[in-house]
């Protein structure tokens, strides 16, 4: 999937990547306590999943209302393999990602033949089935009350969940890698074919694009993004419940994509940041939190239809003479 580095050096987008790296490096200066770091880490982990989902929704134009299923499989895969079976966390993460990739590959073909609302239903059904299995197989997953997950250790260095600085650094680096891989995929022949496909699937097919193959690749890639984000979240939190696999979490991920701006990789990060941080600002309003959240979602979709980041950029451009 990633292309040879020479191509990347020519990519004008590396400016954006450098800017992101700079922001991530400067951010700790304003994060004044562990809670702020905690929110930033949550944003980063969600953003990784959202960047992957954005490839599917934003570029390939395929909706998935079941991505929390992949996120959950990654999380529970890591939890079970590293916790119950004592595997090294990194190996557990990779094995889970591989299993999720295989599953996505197998279900991808029949699912991606579907369009629009049928695709929405199929992915939703798939996500719900994963949720039900995880909730019901109590002997393996701990059932609805969840299960504990060992801390992450990489090459002999252990990260506790209160070790915020190290976690922040890890997530920041992985986020940069996730963005870099996504940008490369978008710029590859697969990416160009996808954009053609998004514009009109029929036209793309007539134009000789192997539509099914390209959609499948992106579906698998986005599932792996979700799985890795899930594994890391499980290790970071130290405890995992089926909430992470549920329908609402799937919706949250889709909302982050749309909020940030479809087909905008950096927007995906903005979408994740807004949706993760927003409830923390709304706590003062207690009872009115869901009302405000719902109203904000609707308002963003109506007034910033292209998403927060592209929408705001448009506004800025429009103001300039």
């Amino acid at each position: 999937m990633p292309l040879p580095p020479r191509r990347w050096l020519d990519d004008p987008r590396r400016g954006g990547l450098a800017a992101l790296a700079l922001i991530l490096a400067m951010l700790p200066l304003v994060l004044s306590n562990r809670f702020h770091f905690d929110v930033a880490i949550h944003v980063g982990l969600a953003a990784i999943a959202v960047i992957g989902l954005n490839l599917l929704i934003g570029y390939a134009g395929q909706i998935s209302l079941g991505h929390a299923g992949f996120f959950g499989l990654g999380a529970y895969g890591s939890a079970v393999l590293s916790g119950t079976h004592g595997w090294p966390p990194l190996l557990a993460l990779l094995a889970s990602a591989l299993a999720v990739a295989t599953l996505a590959f197998l279900v991808g073909r029949p699912i991606l033949r579907l369009r629009g609302h049928y695709l929405a239903m199929a992915t939703l059904g798939m996500g719900l089935l994963i949720f039900m299995v995880i909730t019901n197989e109590r002997a393996i997953t701990g059932g609805p009350d969840g299960m504990s997950v060992p801390g992450l250790s990489l090459f002999g260095y252990a990260l506790g969940s209160r070790d915020k600085g190290a976690w922040y650094a890890l997530v920041a680096v992985l986020l940069l890698v996730a963005v870099w891989l996504a940008l490369n995929l978008i710029d590859s022949p697969v990416g160009r074919a996808l954009r053609a496909l998004h514009a009109s699937e029929v036209a793309a097919t007539v134009g000789g694009v192997d539509v099914a193959q390209h959609k499948l690749i992106v579906f698998v890639v986005s599932a792996v993004y979700a799985s890795v984000a899930g594994s890391l979240s499980a290790h970071y939190g130290g405890f995992i419940t089926p909430d992470a696999v549920g329908f609402l979490h799937s919706i949250e991920l889709v909302t982050m994509v749309v909020l940030g701006g479809m087909a905008s990789t950096y927007g995906a990060i903005v979408g994740a940041a807004v949706l993760v941080a927003l409830p923390q600002f709304l706590t003062a309003f207690h009872d009115y939190e869901p009302v405000l959240l719902g109203a904000i979602l609707i308002a963003c979709m109506i007034f910033l239809r292209r998403g927060l980041l592209p929408g705001v950029l448009d506004l800025v451009r429009a103001r300039r003479p």
């Binding site: 929704i57 909706i63 629009g116 609302h117 929405a120 919706i251 889709v254 909302t255 749309v258 479809m262 009872d287 009115y288 939190e289 869901p290 009302v291 405000l292 959240l293 719902g294 109203a295 904000i296 979602l297 609707i298 979709m301 109506i302 239809r305």
Partner: peptide, 23 residues
């Protein structure tokens, strides 16, 4: 707006209505 946008709007509406109902 696109299908996805409209889905998000109605999901937003359902969250909002649920929130209003509990108040």
């Amino acid at each position: 707006a696109s299908v996805v946008t409209l889905i998000i709007i109605t999901i937003g509406a359902s969250i909002l209505l649920r929130g209003l109902a509990q108040i």
